[in-house]
Design a protein around this nucleic acid. Structure first.
Lengths: 132, 132
DNA sequence: GTGTCTGCAAAGAATTTGCAAAGAC
DNA sequence: GTCTTTGCAAATTCTTTGCAGACAC
């Protein structure tokens, strides 16, 4: 689907800044805001960091992106929005792992360990790797 | 073991500030720095926030505490240092789950998905819960 | 046209750092 | 006594906000 259509389908106006940010995220797959902002500013000098923040946030709310809890403290964003897991290496680079069966298995195993009256919203596994 | 001994065994000097911070962490189990700092300042008015930051950091390096990737962006610390998992509820409160067998199972299942020449440093599952 | 979005500059959180005095061992 | 740690204030880094003009539809 074209970027313009994706953004509009998500209920947002397809501004040039949003189209650019989405395109950058399609390329990067996973990235912290400052990296996206740098790429954006390289492409279109006028674009502002706060705009990028607002766009990333609106994309998350609209279901176009998801957030990653990254060990380096910065907020990372992910072009993949379906339930999945992450491998994070020493450099902080993120790789996706899709394994719905595993997610289901964990959910089943831990479902009675969560509090009374609570439901599981999301399960995410982080695998931190280092050089052998 | 006494707090003083724990700190010294970890190779750090057992200053009053460190003993206090460790005691607070034993009570809270999981907490962000500002909460620890508030508790510390309530107990001993002179203690400084930057000191608490430095203490938490030194405790992590010394293996007395571990860091938690918390979805609210702040760094949370955990008195438990052995491999384990977390349930995080809507309020941001953290609960531990110990399940070494599950960790092993996941490790076995995903070991060939990590990159060439890499080893798994750590596996952590986060379960985000919400009200039913 | 109208309501949303952007740029800018300023404010606000969270965290770090430099340095001199204080304290642990 | 020596080397580490602390307190303080200032600097950095990351993120959010207010507002006026610009733009999507």
């Amino acid at each position: 689907m074209k970027i313009r259509a994706k953004i509009k389908d998500a209920g947002l106006k397809a501004t040039p800044q949003r189209r650019l940010v989405y395109e950058i995220m399609q390329k990067l797959q996973h990235a912290p805001i400052d990296e996206v902002a740098d790429e954006a500013q390289a492409a279109v000098p006028g674009i502002n960091v706060s705009t990028v923040y607002r766009i990333m946030e609106s994309f998350c709310e609209a279901g176009l992106l998801s957030k990653i809890n990254h060990p380096n403290g910065k907020t990372y964003f992910d072009i993949t929005t379906s339930e999945h897991h992450h491998i994070i290496n020493e450099a902080g680079n993120v790789t996706d792992i899709e394994d719905a069966e595993l997610t289901e298995l964990i959910k089943e195993r831990l479902k009675d360990k969560i509090g009374e009256g609570q439901i599981i919203e999301k399960i995410s596994i982080q695998i931190i790797t280092s050089e052998k």
